[in-house]
């Protein structure tokens, strides 16, 4: 057990856990930030995606001890009012079916647009390929990413 001070969604929070604990479980079990989802635990599905600094990372494979003072952003902290351009585009296209994968999809998409505000179809596919949607909403996700890109660039 060790104590960690973590910067999560703009707030510093303390937690005492085993250093090997993945951020996914720190977020869900200890901070009750339940938007970040468990899907596979082995960095294959993207349901647990959060931002570490500016990067989209799989929190199931991110030990709490490796975070240091980097900022962590979860879906709850992506925007104050749920109105990040990516979230808005998701609403406009009405992307979700069951919704379980969508927080991860949105976190991956928002990190992509941060780095590449005008991605091609292929670049979108490459960035989003790590996120599984079992319900098959991919065509809508792609459309929403493009709408978000346009509104970011507008």
């Amino acid at each position: 057990m060790a104590k960690f001070n973590l910067n999560i969604n703009g707030k510093t929070q303390e937690v005492e856990v085993d250093p090997s604990t993945p951020m996914l479980w720190v977020l869900r079990d200890h901070f009750k930030l339940l938007g970040t989802k468990y899907g596979c635990g082995i960095a294959q599905c993207g349901a647990c995606t959060v931002h570490l600094g500016d990067d989209a990372v799989r929190s199931c494979q991110l030990p709490v001890s490796s975070v240091g003072d980097k900022d962590i952003t979860t879906i709850e902290g992506l925007s104050e009012k749920g109105d990040h351009p990516v979230q808005q585009a998701w609403l406009e296209v009405d992307v979700p079916q069951c919704g379980y994968c969508q927080a991860g999809q949105i976190m991956t998409a928002s990190a992509l647009l941060e780095k590449n505000p005008n991605p091609s179809d292929e670049e979108i596919e490459t960035a989003m390929n790590g996120n599984i949607c079992r319900c098959g909403t991919y065509t809508r996700i792609k459309k929403a990413v493009k709408i978000a890109a346009n509104s970011v660039n507008a």
Binding site: L34, G35, I75, G82, L91, D94, P96, G99, Y100
Partner: peptide, 27 residues
Amino acid sequence: HKNVDAKDIVTGEPMFGMDYQKEGMLI
């Protein structure tokens, strides 16, 4: 008509069985 749950989904509101919480709950 738009999905009534879409806003909660895109903002990560807890809503799934997996998200259920209760005081004193064990895993």
